[in-house]
Computed example of a mutant assay.
Amino acid sequence: MSLVLATDAQKAQRDAVTHAAWGSPLSVPQYQEREARLRAHPWSREGMNTWLWLADDGRVLASCETFHTDSFLRGADGQLTQGDSYGIASVFTEEHLRGRGHATRLMDAVAAELEQVAPRPHSVVLFSDVGAPLYRRSGYVEVPAWDWHLDAADAPGGRPVDGGLQETDVAGALARMRQPDVPFFLWPSAAQVDWHLERERIYADLLARPRPRSCGAVVGDSTALWTMNARYGELVVLMLDARDASAAEALLTEARRVAHQAGLKRVVWWEEPTTASLLGGVPGAVRVQRDGSLPMLRPLRPGLPPAPEVPFPRALWL
């Protein structure tokens, strides 16, 4: 058995196979268009690879994708050192090949390869929809995952935001956000955030849906970035830097209005240690244990803190 990088033709072949897992509500041709457009995005072109685990006769036994993401490790002097982390996505084994350990061998081989090729190796992360045991075998450790839900509504009153954000504002919005004051964290680039917005553009085109009027908002020194998940009718908060409870409520109230205007059902954001204490007081907010997208981390070097101490904003999801 061997690990290889997929050719463009092999990527297209895998798209037809993986549609059953991730394609709904798109048709097979629409899903193939989605995948082609996402691969053509600048962030994907810069740091995405598709890996195949092959049998000795060349048959594909399992596949996955990896995306490069910047990460930062704080030294004893408090200074941050930038490194290389990778997100793993689209781990797939066809049904008739499951139960034989192919996915585990693929994950082990990919991690070993990344340890060798990463200039400044830090970690590999994934977001499991099949629980933790499969990936624990390959050294991944899960992080408890909770969501907050808020129904979309044209909510009246409350503290107004200073303004909405457009796609051209993403880089500036990220620059004004506070990075986590923790020993180790991953931080998305503006291109990575725009990759999420490209997903929004694709689904809006293919499903003939209106797009939200903004991709975020600011109030005082506080900032939020969000995107539409048309598949589930949600406005998903990608990054939230709220300096106090009042700002958190203002940003999320604005998100409710934006979601309502776009015909979405709710606003959803991932709980993070830095914002959890601010969210309980937002009127109507409901905390629920996440069903899927369980963050898991595997170190590529010694000395990283335990996975539960690492924050995972939704912008890191793949």
Rank of each mutant, 00 (worst) to 15 (best):
L3V: 02
A6P: 01
R14C: 09
A20Q: 13
A21I: 01
P25D: 08
Q32N: 11
E33V: 11
R34V: 09
P42L: 11
S44G: 12
G47E: 12
M48Y: 07
L52K: 05
W53R: 02
D57Y: 07
G58H: 08
D70W: 10
L73A: 14
A76Q: 13
A76F: 02
G78M: 08
G78K: 04
Q79C: 11
T81N: 07
T81Y: 01
G83P: 06
Y86T: 01
V91N: 00
F92A: 05
E95I: 07
E95Q: 12
T104L: 01
R105M: 03
L106N: 03
D108T: 04
A109L: 00
V110I: 06
V117M: 12
V125I: 14
G131M: 10
P133F: 04
G139D: 00
Y140I: 00
E142N: 10
P144Q: 12
A145D: 15
D147K: 13
L150M: 08
D151E: 14
A152L: 05
A155D: 06
G158D: 08
R159H: 13
P160Y: 04
G163R: 02
Q166E: 07
A173L: 09
A173D: 02
V182G: 03
P183L: 04
L186V: 08
P188W: 10
S189D: 04
V193S: 12
H196G: 10
H196P: 10
R199S: 13
E200T: 15
A204I: 05
D205I: 07
L206F: 15
L206W: 15
L206M: 14
R209I: 10
P212H: 13
S214H: 14
S214E: 15
G216Q: 07
G216T: 04
V218G: 01
V218Y: 12
V218T: 12
V218H: 11
G220A: 06
G220V: 11
S222T: 04
E234H: 10
E234N: 05
L240S: 03
A242L: 06
D244Q: 04
E249L: 01
E254M: 06
H260Y: 12
A262D: 07
G263E: 08
W269V: 08
W270K: 06
T275M: 13
T275C: 07
L278Q: 06
G280C: 09
G281Q: 13
G281C: 06
A285S: 07
G292R: 05
S293R: 10
M296V: 03
L297R: 13
R298M: 00
P299M: 03
G303I: 03
P308E: 09
P311T: 05
P311I: 11
P311E: 04
P313H: 08
A315H: 01
A315I: 02
